[in-house]
Design a protein around this nucleic acid. Sequence first.
DNA 1: GTCTATATTCTGATAGAC
DNA 2: GTCTATCAGAATATAGAC
Lengths: 214, 214
Amino acid sequence: MPSAPRARRKEDARARILDEARRIVLEQGFEALTMRRIAEAAGYSAAALYLHFANRDAIARALGEGGMRSLLAALTEAAAVPDPVARLGALALAYVGFARSDPETYRLIFMEQGFAASALGGKDEAGAAAFQLLAGAFQDLHRAGRLKPGQDPAALALTFWILVHGTASLKLTCSAFLSPSEEDLLATALDALLNGVLEPDPTGPNSPGRSIRR
Amino acid sequence: MPSAPRARRKEDARARILDEARRIVLEQGFEALTMRRIAEAAGYSAAALYLHFANRDAIARALGEGGMRSLLAALTEAAAVPDPVARLGALALAYVGFARSDPETYRLIFMEQGFAASALGGKDEAGAAAFQLLAGAFQDLHRAGRLKPGQDPAALALTFWILVHGTASLKLTCSAFLSPSEEDLLATALDALLNGVLEPDPTGPNSPGRSIRR
DNA sequence: GTCTATATTCTGATAGAC
DNA sequence: GTCTATCAGAATATAGAC
């Protein structure tokens, strides 16, 4: 076991490497994240990085995990809103706010292939906790009897995730085609999700779902 | 102007190059698309490709444009359904079906940075036509008086796009975390979008939108 | 039009001196 | 622990012969 000061110094090096890596991804994108660039920014030789991380993938994974913890922190703050409906608005804003403020990290976690499969597919605690915050709002609505009969809170949480991810990711890649702001897009989408867009049909609710599930 | 047979042969070469490029992307992913690999598959030297395409980006752009035309074709078929509500279900299935059957092309068009900005941001006719098919369904609902008062068909079309893209893209990157099938996810989401999930509130509809727009 | 050969530049990763 | 030097290979793109 290394002595306390040595262990601390080693952790410092690790943290410095990750800090610079995060900055490179933020400023130049994920594909600019090379061992040489990280090393130069952190004041090391490229070879020295391999004393602290097994390889480039390990650095990318650490970045993604850190990003997921940031997302969890942002969502946790929003989840403090008591009323579940208002909370969903706050959660949606926090989610797309994270994607907008750190788009390359959002890409890395949710739009790159390989990361979500390995980090989330394993047992990423932060990711599971983040999703639980979304699910909790729908569970609260369910317990309060505010959901229509037959609505499944867990399935609705997935729909909510799809909605905020769709907003965040389309805004990142197709912003030229998506002129409304994230706020306007989310306001329209959440209103539709909660209250519906169709006039009530006296002969029973419309169900494209039936035809989809056939 | 080249003679007819020569022009045809030149177009053949172009088509063969694109065919092989498409196959490589489909089977090995977009990052495996290198000039060397394309050339080998098409039976050319790498240098010969530069007689038919300015550079690698031009090949990628041609692939994306072709993919967008395929998506438009799939959506056009689904758009033949007369009833607008049933049509939305068909369009959603066609959209995610395209993403599932050709995931790497879907990535290239809608999840990679650079393509949508250049191809869609310009004046991609197929892309605009594809979106118009989605918007048309909501316009039909609007004209038939089946939308609630104050609902904007154009904004709802964006919401619909967000939903189907969210479903398609999350399924591509986070399938381990999204156990339900695309069909089940879409059925839940479309039912929510059209009919809402909350019990009607006698004091007026719930509006997280107001708090979002603040 | 197509080839071979090559220039140039980048990448991740390792060996071995200190 | 950190360095220099290097390996082994990949990439795009071009020059010039045929």
